[in-house]
Simulated assay, not measured.
Amino acid sequence: MTKWTAQDIVDQQGRTFVVTGANSGLGAVTARALAGAGADVVLACRDVAKGEEVARPLGSRARVRKLDLADLDSVREFAAGIDSVDVLVNNAGVMAVPNRRTADGFEMQFGTNHLGHFALTGLLLDRITDRVVTMSSLMHRLGTIDLADPNYEHRSYRRWPAYGQSKLANLLFAYELDRRLAAAGSAVKSLAAHPGYASTGLQGHTDSVWDRVMGIGNLMAQSAEMGALPELYAATAADAVGGTFIGPDGPFEQRGYPKVVASNAKSRDRAVAAALWGESETLTGVTYEFES
């Protein structure tokens, strides 16, 4: 693909998108771009007030719904209020936070970034008509899926490996979902994307010295508008292929325009993906039902 930008988004009138974490950063940029292309956008936000600030200038095309991915009751309540959706963008996330637990007792990063989106996607799947886009990260390369202790109940917590595990889980999920959809003969597809190194609010919520370090690093980062391009391409481009990973085309995938990129061997391990899927269904209580 050649230098695809938000101006290349085709007319999205008549289509509905759900974007998680749309109250700030990449999610807010994505919601604005989709509404600007004519789409109806549901901003799925933990912070509803901030979501309303984003939605207000977008007019009737945007509406805000409460969604806390760190609380499965909230996920179920949100999903129950969605009638139909063409595209689900699993964008929200937390990064390198201290050792905390979700409302259901999961490690916060694995529980929010992976399990919350796994449950949300499964609960909405019978109403999704086109595709699911799940945001991962270059940091998936730091991750290893510990199926014996994914929630750090028995091992020492380390924030960056935990983040890497959650982002690797996002990729394993996106690829496995696409395989299962294809096997069921479904027309729905699943893709993954990553923003490179983009300046967003995500880097400022680690509650550690890393906030200051990454604040300095943000001076060299690309804008959130550029960082959102891979997920926008994955969510809207007619020629986007299921089971692919979209990221920036620049050096080391740090910045640039969308293209299909590679992910590491761990993310392509089908045995681990299947085992993670089973464990995710057990932990969330959400069992997927596939229809063609």
Rank of each mutant, 00 (worst) to 15 (best):
M226D: 15
S208H: 05
R179S: 08
L181Y: 10
A228H: 11
Y197D: 09
Q203A: 04
S186G: 13
V213E: 08
I216E: 11
A198I: 03
M220H: 08
P230N: 12
M226I: 08
M220L: 15
N218L: 10
N218T: 11
L232N: 00
S208I: 07
G215D: 13
D211S: 09
A187G: 14
L181T: 09
R212P: 03
G196F: 03
W210L: 15
L219E: 00
M226Q: 14
H205S: 10
E231F: 08
A198D: 06
K189N: 10
Q222Y: 07
I216P: 00
A198L: 08
G196I: 06
E231W: 03
V213P: 01
E176P: 07
G217N: 12
D211P: 03
P195I: 14
S199R: 13
M214A: 13
N218W: 02
G217A: 15
I216T: 13
K189F: 01
A198Q: 02
T200C: 05
Q203M: 01
N218D: 10
G204T: 04
E176V: 05
S208Y: 03
M226P: 00
A183S: 12
E231S: 09
L191F: 11
L229R: 13
A224I: 02
D211G: 05
S199Y: 07
L229W: 08
W210C: 02
L177R: 14
T200L: 01
A187E: 14
L202P: 00
Q222S: 15
P195Y: 07
Y197A: 15
M214V: 05
I216C: 04
K189R: 15
M220W: 13
G196D: 02
R180S: 11
T206V: 07
Q203V: 11
G185E: 14
V213K: 04
M220K: 11
A193G: 00
L229G: 06
S186C: 06
G217M: 15
A198T: 04
R212T: 12
G227P: 13
H205L: 03
A187W: 06
H194G: 04
A183G: 13
G201E: 14
G185D: 06
A182I: 01
M214W: 10
A193P: 00
R179K: 14
A221K: 10
W210S: 08
